[in-house]
Amino acid sequence: MTSSFSLSQNRRRWTNYAMHGLVIGATALALTPLVLIFIYLIMKGAGALNWDFFTQPVGSGDGVANAILGTATLVGLASCIGIPVGLLSGLYLSEYGRTTKFGTILRFFTDVLNSTPSIVVGVFGFAFIVIPTKHFSALAGAVALSILMIPIITRSTEEIALLVPNSLREAGLALGLPRWRVILWIVARTARAGIVTGILLSVARVAGESAPLLLTALGNLWWNRNLNEPIAALPVQIYNYATSPFPKLWDQAWGAALVLVGLVALTSLLARVISHREQLR
């Protein structure tokens, strides 16, 4: 009796150890690609970085300067559309649309948009802007990116604004402020750090997007002088270089990837710092 009892005790203990080991192993294996990707990025990418790389356009074969500027332009334009729309709909959802029918519908569509594959948004940009205007353009790319930004900003703004205590709103209203001032001056201000974090995360997300841009902004070998013309973007350039048959361009692809990951990481780091500082306050 005792021996069989301790036997099953032993088995239970060993199963526990084995599962603990397996779980740690799974975690280690899950993180391996991350480490490998960073090693590759730094080893292969750092060699490609030099003065020409940051100053010459793609067409010269030595740099990606116009792609860097193109990504900045596209993200900037997309932000001009995406930030106001996302911010306002987020505030609407938290302030007016908590329980209304329209609020529920808006929330639903935001969620649908949020989980839509980015290529589908690109297809939409292609059908909606590129086909009617008959040419690829920077504007079409910016519209596609802004469609990707809006749901992210809307949801993060809503969630943060919901955390603002009602007593603050009531205090404002009791002082005789109209509702829109309470929202802009009190709610948006209190939730400022969280809202900025959401915006930065959405910027980091769309800066790395290439699928929708292939269908809208197309890419460009030279500097873009007109927003109605195709424009280069870093992710698209990486794709073009990586699938080309020339080893010299592969090096450029690694360099561009290193720059892109650096930019994205910097943006998310900034977002982290801002939200962290707010938590400490």
Binding site: P235, A242, A257, A265
Partner: peptide, 9 residues
């Protein structure tokens, strides 16, 4: 957070 195209590369 790593862009899709970097995974592809």
């Amino acid at each position: 957070a790593i862009p899709s195209v970097v995974y592809g590369l």
